Amino acid sequence: MIIKINGKYYKIKKIEKNPNGKYTITTENGKKYEFKNVKIFSEEELK
């Protein structure tokens, strides 16, 4: 799965839903981001 952050695309390693309704997304390079609204892309959609 792929996520778009600030115009760049990252591969997703893990998605966790937090009790506060936000999502914590861990990218393949180990960085964590927290979002309220998340749009996930499949690799097929990006081709």
Results as ranks from 00 to 15, higher is better:
K11I: 09
K8H: 10
I3K: 01
K39A: 09
G7N: 10
E28S: 12
K36G: 10
E45G: 08
G30E: 03
G30P: 00
E45V: 06
T24M: 09
E45C: 15
K39L: 14
E16N: 03
K22R: 14
E16K: 06
Y10E: 05
Y23C: 05
Y9Q: 04
N18I: 03
G7L: 03
S42Q: 12
I15R: 00
G7D: 06
I3N: 00
N6F: 13
N37Y: 15
N20H: 06
E16W: 07
N18T: 10
I5T: 01
N6R: 12
N20I: 03
K32E: 12
K32F: 06
K14N: 10
K31W: 10
K4S: 09
K17Q: 10
N29I: 03
I40R: 03
K17L: 14
E44S: 10
I15P: 00
K17C: 14
T26C: 02
K47T: 12
G7P: 00
E44H: 10
K14V: 08
N37W: 15
E16D: 06
E44T: 07
K32Y: 06
E16Y: 07
K22S: 15
Y23L: 09
K14D: 07
K11F: 07
T27K: 01
Y9K: 04
S42D: 09
G21M: 02
K11L: 07
F35R: 07
K17F: 08
S42G: 08
K4T: 06
K14E: 10
E43D: 10
F35H: 03
K11V: 08
K39P: 11
L46I: 13
G30Y: 01
N18Y: 05
E28Q: 12
I2N: 05
K11A: 06
I3Q: 00
K13R: 11
K13A: 14
K14I: 08
L46E: 07
I40V: 08
Y23R: 01
K11H: 09
K4P: 02
K22F: 14
K39Q: 13
I15T: 01
G21Y: 01
Y9L: 08
I12A: 03
N37P: 03
T27R: 01
V38I: 14
S42V: 11
K14Q: 13
E45P: 07
K13F: 11
N6I: 03
I25T: 00
V38Q: 05
I15K: 01
V38T: 04
N6L: 10
E44L: 10
K14A: 13
I25L: 04
K36Q: 11
I25F: 04
K11P: 03
K32W: 04
Y9V: 06
L46R: 06
F41D: 04
G21H: 02
K22A: 14
G21F: 02
I5N: 01
F35K: 04
I3V: 11
M1P: 05
K8N: 07
K31H: 11
N37C: 15
K31F: 10
K31V: 10
E43K: 04
Y9N: 04
Y23A: 01
Y23P: 00
K11W: 07
F41H: 06
K32G: 02
Y33C: 08
K22G: 14
K39V: 15
Y9D: 03
L46A: 09
N6T: 03
P19I: 11
S42I: 11
N29H: 08
T26K: 01
K13T: 11
N6W: 12
I5H: 04
K31L: 12
E43C: 15
I12S: 00
K39T: 13
M1S: 07
G30W: 02
F35N: 02
K14P: 00
N20K: 06
Y33P: 00
I2E: 04
K39S: 10
Y33H: 04
E43L: 03
Y33T: 01
M1L: 14
K13Y: 09
I40N: 05
M1D: 04
P19L: 10
M1Q: 07
K13G: 05
L46D: 07
K22H: 13
E43P: 08
S42M: 12
K4Q: 12
F41C: 15
Y10G: 01
K8C: 13
G30C: 03
I25W: 01
I3W: 03
I15C: 11
K32D: 04
F35G: 03
E34K: 07
I40C: 14
E43F: 03
I3F: 04
I5Q: 01
K14M: 11
P19D: 11
F41E: 06
T26S: 02
Y10D: 01
N18Q: 12
L46F: 11
G30K: 01
K36L: 12
N29D: 15
T24I: 14
E45Y: 05
K17N: 04
Y23D: 01
Y23S: 02
M1A: 07
T26N: 02
Y33D: 00
P19N: 09
K17P: 04
K13M: 13
E45A: 09
K36N: 11
G7T: 03
K11G: 04
P19H: 09
I2K: 06
K32C: 11
M1G: 08
V38R: 03
E44I: 09
I40W: 15
F35Q: 03
Y33I: 06
Y33K: 02
T27P: 00
K4G: 07
E45M: 09
E34H: 11
E43R: 02
E34Y: 14
I2H: 12
K11Q: 06
E34P: 02
Y10T: 04
I2C: 15
I12M: 02
K31I: 10
M1I: 11
E43Y: 06
G30H: 02
I3G: 02
P19W: 07
G7C: 09
N20F: 05
K22E: 10
E44P: 09
I2Q: 06
E45K: 06
I25A: 02
F35L: 13
Y33S: 01
I12Q: 00
K8I: 14
E16V: 11
K14G: 09
K4M: 14
I15G: 00
Y9T: 05
T24H: 04
M1Y: 14
F35M: 12
N20P: 04
Y23E: 00
K17I: 13
Y23W: 14
K31G: 09
K14W: 11
I2Y: 15
K13N: 08
I5D: 01
T26P: 00
E28V: 14
N37A: 09
P19R: 11
N20S: 08
K17R: 12
K8A: 09
E45L: 09
I40P: 05
K17M: 13
I40E: 06
K17W: 09
K47S: 12
Y9A: 04
K47N: 13
E28L: 15
F41N: 03
G21I: 00
E45T: 10
I2M: 15
S42Y: 15
T26G: 00
K14F: 10
T27C: 13
V38S: 04
